[in-house]
Design a protein around this nucleic acid. Structure first.
Length: 612
RNA sequence: GGGGGCGUGGCGAAGCUGGUUAUCGCGCCGGCCUGUCAAGCCGGAGACCGCGGGUUCAAGCCCCGUCGCUCCCGCCA
């Protein structure tokens, strides 16, 4: 095997003239040089075919029977994923050998010279869509995984999305401004990642959960329209759609109301989908109130690719003889149901139990059911509703062969659990159009949430969202119904953006703090620098923050944001690639004034002994 | 913090109500083959069945524990 000593010289002579994806019949007759990786190597004795791959595509290289012995010998020894350079003549394939599945299938390159630029060891998994290697292994060898067609396309889509965002916002006079990633820790909301300070032992920076406060300060600065494709950090457990570090398209603008932010976002999404997927989105997205989303779809991020609404059953439940329903209503709860058209025969007792298990995950105590037959309602809890049978059939519109599913519980549990049942039905019954993109705005979120455990009002989101005008007078006396100028954008069952019109008036801000029991002193200590800025001519402002990872995930048809992040963490928050986080040197700890390493070990040992 | 699923050569899987030699495809090594494009044909190497313990005449399979991954609840915009 010839491995060159002077690779610079080789590169000089064998620098690519074309990529592996661009050659077509029009290039026939040209002498070209390609650089790439050996994707396939088929040896037919007298003739070799090598599929050479780079970022741009795959081209077939042929080593003919008339090639030199050296070249044949070299081709024989090329293994998967060798990085090579090929110099040769582009020629049209004979008609019957054209490969219509290959963008370069019209041509092939008759190799004249081949140089091995870099060898490759036996692979841990095939760089191939069909390899199906486990994700942890793929993450450990991400550099190989990213060579695959799918990952390459996902990374490209992500780039194109970010590019379209920059293009759109820049054309609308937005500035892209970087905000700090070492900031003050504010322990509200998610846990902060902490960066200890060497210069000030005992003190620490936090990594931002979002650039929220800084972007609001930029509005006070009069910079007017800001965006940033911003890395954000949250020290919480990962999920398929959540990573400890993620990227959001952070946007803030001054002198706007809710409608301005919504229409800007709609325009931006339309631009992105047009540029990346050549898809036209509706000019205005559907709108649902939070209450409506929860009641009809059982989620604040409903999948609107199918309907199957959840409906109210409380009026019949409260007067029926079935004590589970009756008592729930009497105790302030609610009874709601789903009508599954034509599902009676598909759903045996066993399959209904699966649905019930789904409901139970979200706190439901059970899933009551009945089926509509030729004679009326039958099975399940139908025997308790003999008197109301007619009324139920009329109310629900149940027809022969339909299945009715009920949950009786608190409003929230009823909605959430039926929402989960609805999702499962949608998947199981194939109601979801996988090619659809169902955007919707969720509006009118409550600003406050009653905390049962601590007997106090909590902020339902963050504390800097503007209450809607009609609630301003009664906010303190009756916080429950207060709606905020908050908005979420949902897409196919995911929340892909969240934003609000902010409070820019220190007086209103103070009142909100009061409702949630935040003392002046505490507010001053945690957010003083922002509240102070608001004393100096803060403009009315608002914004939104679409999650880039989730957006691209959905556009790519993936189920996990890890598929659209070049180097993600796994669900345990670890990086299998570099094995981080890792232990650090004692001297690093010493420099930071962190002395606990031995103490932690001792504590762990003590705990271990206690466990025994 | 809690629940579900998975863990079998380098990779992906099969392995029945426990039964003696752990199977298949890909990859790897050797050979053959002039038009393939998931190339084909012949031969070969490679596995402490995640780890520890238990039940049994006998465990990949059953039980207990533990570790890892993954999905979900909690948590989290």
């Amino acid at each position: 095997m010839f491995i060159p000593d002077d690779r610079f010289l080789i590169m000089n002579e064998f620098k690519r003239t074309h990529t592996c994806g661009e050659l077509s019949g029009n290039d026939a007759g040209k002498t070209v040089t390609l650089n790439g990786w050996v994707y396939k190597n088929r040896n037919h004795g007298g003739i070799h075919f090598i599929n050479l791959r780079d970022r741009y595509g795959v081209s077939q290289v042929v080593i003919d029977e008339d090639a030199s012995e050296d070249l044949i010998n070299l081709a024989d020894n090329l293994k998967f994923e060798y990085c090579i350079a090929v110099k040769g003549l582009v020629r049209k394939r004979p008609d019957e050998m054209i490969n219509p599945d290959m963008s370069t299938g019209e041509i092939e390159i008759k190799a004249e010279e081949i140089r091995v630029l870099s060898q490759c060891e036996v692979l841990p998994f095939m760089v191939d869509e069909k390899s199906n290697a486990k994700e942890d292994l793929r993450l450990k060898y991400r550099f190989l995984d990213l060579r695959s067609e799918k990952m390459k396309n996902n990374i490209r889509l992500r780039h194109e999305t970010a590019f379209a965002v920059r293009e759109y916002l820049s054309n609308k006079d937005f500035y892209e401004i970087e905000t700090p990633t070492f900031i003050k820790s504010t322990p509200e909301g998610a846990r902060d990642f902490i960066v200890p300070s060497r210069l000030y032992p005992g003190k620490a920076f936090a990594l931002p959960q979002s650039p929220q406060i800084y972007k609001q300060l930029l509005m006070v600065s009069g910079l007017d329209k800001y965006f940033q494709i911003a890395r954000c950090y949250r020290d919480e457990d990962a999920r398929g759609d959540r990573q400890p570090e993620f990227t959001q398209i952070d946007i803030e603008m001054s002198f706007v109301d809710r409608e301005d932010v919504l229409s800007l976002t709609e325009g931006m999404m339309s631009h992105v989908f047009e540029k990346t997927l050549s898809l036209k989105l509706p000019e205005n997205f559907r709108r649902l109130s939070y209450h409506e989303a929860m009641e009809s779809y059982g989620s604040d991020k409903p999948d609107l690719r199918f309907e199957m609404k959840i409906k109210d059953f409380t009026d019949i439940a409260e007067k029926c003889s079935f004590s589970v329903f009756k008592d729930t209503v009497a105790n302030g709860g609610t009874v709601r149901y789903i009508l599954a058209k034509g599902c009676a025969s598909d759903y045996s007792r066993k399959k209904i139990t699966e649905l019930e298990d789904t409901a139970k995950i979200y706190g439901a105590k059970g899933l009551a059911w009945m089926k509509a037959g030729e004679e009326g309602l039958e099975g399940g809890v139908s025997k308790f509703f003999k008197d109301e049978e007619k009324e139920i059939i009329e109310k629900t519109g149940a027809e022969n062969g339909d299945l009715l599913l009920f949950v009786a519980d608190s409003w929230k549990v009823t909605c959430n659990s039926l929402g989960a049942v609805r999702s499962k039905l949608g998947k199981d019954l194939g109601l979801i159009d996988e090619s659809a993109f169902a955007f919707a705005w969720i509006l009118d979120f409550p600003l406050f949430e009653w905390n049962e455990d601590e007997n106090k009002w909590d902020p339902a989101h963050h504390m800097f969202s503007m209450p809607q005008g009609q609630y301003l007078e009664t906010m303190e006396q009756d916080p429950g119904p207060v709606k905020g100028d908050l908005y979420d954008l949902v897409l196919n069952g995911y929340e892909i953006a969240s934003g609000s019109i902010r409070v820019h008036d220190p007086e209103i801000q103070k009142r909100i703090f009061n409702v949630v029991g935040f003392s002046d002193e505490e507010a001053e200590r945690k957010f003083g620098f922002m509240l102070n800025a608001f004393k100096y001519g803060a403009p009315p402002h608002g914004g939104i923050a679409p999650g880039l990872d989730r957006l691209v995930m959905i556009m790519a048809g993936e189920d996990s944001i890890r598929e659209v992040i070049a180097f993600p963490k796994n669900t345990a928050g670890l990086s299998p690639l570099d094995d981080s986080p890792s232990e650090i040197e004692q001297n690093q700890l010493d420099e930071l004034g962190i002395l606990f390493k031995e103490e932690i070990k001792e504590e762990a040992e003590v705990a271990e002994k206690a466990a025994e």
